[in-house]
C-alpha cells in the first residue's frame, strides 16, 4: 500500500513505546456512540437511574473507550503498514465518566513471523489512563503488518 510514512514489520522493534495525546470524553461522544451502536443500555443513557448505581452517574460504553483509544493512539505514533487487525484481549478495569480525559500508552510486546514471507504479526500492549493516572482499560492487540518489499 502506498504511503511512504507507514512502517514495515522489519523496522518496528520490540520494546518501542508510544504515548497518545489526551482526549476528553464528552456526553456527546456517548450519545453518538449509543446512536451508532444501538446500545442504549441504562448505564450510558439514564442519568436518573445511574444516580443510584455504584458509579453515581452515566459512564461511557466500554467499547466507546476502546474505539476512542484506537483512534487516539494513531495520533501518537507513525502508522504501521497494517494489512489486517487480527484480534485482541481486553480488560475494562474502571469506568470512563463524562469529562474524564484519557491517554493511551502502548508498547511493542512481540513480533512473530508467519508462513507468508511478506508479512508478520505485531502484538501491542496498550493501557488507557484517565487524568488521575488510573488504568481504566488495558489489553493486547495483534496486527498483521507488511514486510519491506524486496
Amino acid at each position: 500500500m502506498p504511503g511512504e510514512d507507514r512502517r514495515y514489520f522489519d523496522e518496528i522493534q520490540v520494546g518501542e513505546e508510544y504515548v497518545s495525546p489526551g482526549r476528553t470524553v464528552t456526553e456527546a461522544d456517548i450519545v453518538i456512540f449509543a446512536g451508532l451502536s444501538g446500545d442504549y443500555n441504562v448505564l450510558h443513557t439514564d442519568a436518573e437511574f445511574m444516580k443510584g448505581s455504584v458509579f453515581g452517574e452515566r459512564i461511557a460504553h466500554g467499547l466507546l473507550g476502546l474505539a476512542i483509544q484506537s483512534g487516539l493512539l494513531t495520533r501518537g505514533m507513525r502508522p504501521f503498514a497494517t494489512i489486517a487487525f487480527l484480534g485482541l484481549r481486553w480488560k475494562f478495569k474502571g469506568p470512563i465518566k463524562i469529562g474524564d480525559t484519557i491517554t493511551v500508552r502502548a508498547k511493542v510486546l512481540e513480533k512473530r513471523e508467519t508462513s507468508k514471507p511478506d508479512r508478520g504479526i505485531i502484538t501491542l500492549q496498550r493501557q488507557v489512563l484517565n487524568q488521575k493516572g488510573e488504568v481504566v482499560q488495558e489489553g493486547e492487540t495483534d496486527v498483521m503488518v507488511e514486510r519491506r518489499p524486496r
Binding site: 456512540f33 451508532l36 451502536s37 444501538g38 446500545d39 442504549y40 443500555n41 448505564l43 448505581s53 455504584v54 460504553h61 466500554g62 467499547l63 466507546l64 474505539a67 489486517a84 487487525f85 487480527l86 484480534g87 485482541l88 484481549r89 481486553w90 480488560k91 475494562f92 469506568p95 489489553g139
Partner: peptide, 28 residues
C-alpha cells in the same frame, strides 16, 4: 463488534441487568 452489542438489545426479551462489561477476547 460495537453494533453487535446494540443488536443484542433488540432481541425481544427483557434487558439483561448488566452492572459492568469486564473484558473480552476477540478475533477478526
Amino acid at each position: 463488534l460495537c453494533i453487535s452489542s446494540g443488536l443484542g438489545w433488540r432481541v425481544p426479551k427483557s434487558p439483561l441487568a448488566v452492572l459492568a462489561f469486564m473484558g473480552f477476547e476477540w478475533k477478526f
